[in-house]
Every structure is written in C-alpha cells, then in structure tokens.
Design a protein around this nucleic acid. Structure first.
Lengths: 244, 244
DNA sequence: TCAATAGTGTCTGTTAGACATTATGCC
DNA sequence: GGCATAATGTCTAACAGACACTATTGA
C-alpha cells in the first residue's frame, strides 16, 4: 500500500475451500463436480466468487461452506494461502484465497442445497495425480494437506477432526491417518496426556468399542501444544529431506 | 471457484512487504513514510497496487521490493497472508497480499529511487503499539515476526539474515534477536552442527572478531531442519500459553 | 602475559520409543 | 473364562541443558 494512483487494476476475487475429514481412517477432501465451463464435469474444490464488493473473505468462505457443503459450522477454518497466477483460470485473471477447514466425521455424504454434486474423496489419488482436478486445485489440496500435517504437531488441530467428545484411540487415528504412519498406542497415550491443556477428561463417561470402554475427552483450552507431538524420526520416509 | 456468474465483483489488489533484517542485534523492519492521504505522514509497509491486470503477485512483490526498498534481490521472499477486511482502507475495499522478506544486514539505510523515505525501524515499539502504523500494518508486522519466529525452528530461514558466509556466533545472534532469548553458545554450536545440511563449512577461511577467529560457513542444501532448533522450555515466557 | 572468543568434552535429568503388565468391560 | 482393548509401568538409548576445559588469535 503506497502512494500509487488509486485507480488500480481490480481483480475478481474468489474463495476456495479445502475441507478435510476422516472417513474409514483415511483422509478425505470434499469436492464438487463442476456444472459449467471451464472444466465442466471435472472435480473441483467448493468455492466461488465474492457475492458482493464488501463481503469479507472469511465471511465468503463461511457462506460457501454453508451453500456448497451444507456445513453450518466447522471447528476449524483458517486461511491457507492465495493463488493468483495469471493464467490459472482460462476465463482471465482471477485471484483465489484458499481456506482450510476441518470437519469431524459426518453422518453421510453431504446432500444439501447446492451440495448435491459434492462428495468426499480420499486425498491420495488426488495428490498423486491419479485423479484430475480443475484449475490449480491439486496444488491447493496438496498445500492444505501439508498445512494440516504440520499443524498437527504444534497445535490441537487434531481435535477438530473428532466429535465433541472422543477417546484417545480416536485421536490417535487422526494422527495416523493424516501423517500416514503408525503410532504406538501406549506411548501416544502418555504423550497426549503429558501435553497439558490439549485434552481434558469429559466426565466419567465411557464408550465401548469391542474391548474395555475408554474414557472420553474433549478439546482442552490450549491451541498451541507444548511439548509438541513430534513426527518421530522413524517416520521420516515420505518427502525428500530437502523441501521448500 | 464454481458455477457462479462470471461477472463477479472485482477488487483492487495490493501487495505489502514485511522486510526484516538484523541491525545491532535487534530485529528491524523496513517502513516508508506515506506521502499522500490516507495516513499521510504515517509509517507504513512498503507496497502498492498491482501495476497491471496480469501482473503476478510474487512479481508485484519483487517489483515493490526493488522500487520502494531498492533491494534487487533477497534470500527469502514468501507469501505471508491476505488482509482483506472491508474497511481496512478508508478509500474503499482493498485486498492486500502480504509478503515476508528477509534481508541480510545492509550497508546503510536504503536510499534509492522511491526509497528515500524508507527507514529501518526496530520491531518492538511497533508490536507494542508504542509507535503507530498506517492501516492494519501493525497486525501484518506482528504476523510477519511471528511467522519468522516459528520458521526459525524448523527451517534454515536464519541463514537468510546472514551474509553469504557467516560464523556460528553470527547465526546464533539471529536466533537470539528474533526469538528474544539468550542461548548457550556451546550447546548452540553442537546443535547447529548436528542438523546436517543446515550449514556447511565455507573453506578454511576465518574471520576475527576480538578473540579467536571463527570458521566460516554458508547455508547448506536443506531448507527443512531435522532435528529442529527448539525454543527451549525455559524460553517459554513471552506469549500466553494459549494462542490461536 | 592477559583478554576474548572459538571449539570440545562431560555430566545429569528428561524424554522418546520399545515393550511388559495389569485393568475392565462384553461375549 | 476368554477376548479385546484401555491404561499403567519399566527399561534403555538419545538428547537438551548446564558448565568445565582447551585452543587460538590479538593486544
């Protein structure tokens, strides 16, 4: 922002949503089938243009969340990044602000108003390029997943994948699914209990899942974890050691 | 991005730059004095509107970096976030994409083309609100500093504050200045050497600084650090334990 | 020689990671 | 009781943090 001429070029602004959830212990993202050109029939992230000139970006994200995904509320919604390469949209210059949302496991594939064409898709075929996505949405999904992976380490983001109350085993499944590794339940139990403020006991309630019933917890007050949940060294496998 | 009417509201797009450097062992940010309303005479981040409709965001950031800061090249430049609250600019809706840049210590306060009014300012009075900034630039600076703090832990970002070659003591000063804590030189030495790929020896060259000359290093190939440089527990002091 | 910083060594408490053991439900 | 999972305990190697010590220069 500076002393430039106020008559600056104006750009159509859109928001795109990377909505992640867990289904059958695998990470899924919500996609919609496009009904119009360009990329008619292709899979794309839910999203859309600002509805009017004064709409806030987060407001637009929440509106699309409700309209396209039929999700009135999600426990986590935050900006992911800006995608504004000239040429990313064949119609012309469009700058899109991507948001990352996390939703707990939902009753069934959404079937709402605009959300008829929406469906949950496992992320792996999308990341590998096995399945195609419209625009630059593959990169956005990849950035969203990577963002979630990193954030699981240092924040209580994992609880956003769970219901209001959950067992420690369920929380562990979140880490295993998002990180794509296996964790020792005993050590995980200790670790997660040691990060005070992460989860708090939710009364004496219990839940059975075949074996001994487990205690229920809910998300604690802290959003920043200390000590962090480290992706153990033996989990160094996927990415090359050189990134960025 | 979806099936909406293509005739979407278009918004003037700007880029703002948070350019950080170290001066006298303190973290500084580059600010310019505004020459026009609004906020005429106030301090603001360097930046400006897109020059034309097809200009890339990173391109715009680099252009402003050269024009307003006289910095042809910086070792680190990355998107920081989007600031698009309606009302953040009294002239009307403006969405700004903020970039974080890191520059090594520079010969002298920049004095270039547009950069006459630019000056390096210590960040603390800005973060505390003691010094005023135009628009929402205080928040952007705060986000940029926080981003840098976090990134020092897991990436080789610290080397971007240094010249091409540097001593381990100089690298330590970066951590101490950005984190605002003191570190033990002996343990820091071991730690930084243990993170292989972080820094590599730069020949047998040496440099004197009062005592025994130190070995010179340059940035290594890895951008992602393992093991990370942890802000030690005793350094938990500044922010409340609850964030986000 | 001393002053000052670079670089190495050592010790100790804590923790990650491996795995044994006990507890508590349901069939 | 038998089975499955929850929860706790134990051990060991590794590491963070503290600090003693040696090394190498200039004054």
């Amino acid at each position: 922002m500076d002393d430039d001429d106020w008559r600056a070029p104006a750009v159509p602004l859109a928001v795109d949503l990377v909505i992640l959830t867990l289904r059958e212990s695998r990470l899924h993202v919500l996609l919609v089938e496009r009904g119009v050109d360009p990329y008619r029939g292709a899979l794309a992230l839910p999203g859309g243009f600002l509805s009017h000139l004064e709409e806030g970006l987060l407001d637009a994200a929440r509106r699309e969340l409700a309209e396209e995904a039929d999700l009135a509320e999600v426990p986590y919604l935050e900006e992911l990044g800006v995608y504004g390469d000239p040429g990313r949209d064949p119609r012309g210059r469009v700058v899109s602000v991507a948001f990352l949302a996390i939703a707990p496991r939902l009753p069934e594939p959404v079937a709402g108003t605009d959300a008829a064409a929406a469906s949950w898709r496992p992320v792996e075929p999308l990341l590998s390029g096995e399945e195609e996505l419209a625009f630059d949405h593959r990169r956005i999904v990849a950035d969203g997943v990577e963002h979630a992976r990193r954030k699981l380490e240092h924040s209580a983001l994992a609880t956003a994948f769970c219901d209001a109350t959950f067992t420690i085993a369920e929380l562990q499944q979140v880490y295993e699914a998002v990180w794509g590794i296996r964790l020792d339940p005993r050590n995980f139990y200790r670790k997660v209990q040691g990060a005070r403020g992460f989860i708090v006991a939710a009364g004496p309630a219990r839940r059975t899942d075949g074996g001994r019933p487990a205690r229920l917890f809910r998300a604690g007050p802290l959003h920043s974890l200390y000590p962090p949940m480290v992706r153990s060294a033996h989990a160094v496998h996927e990415g090359a050691p050189i990134d960025e």
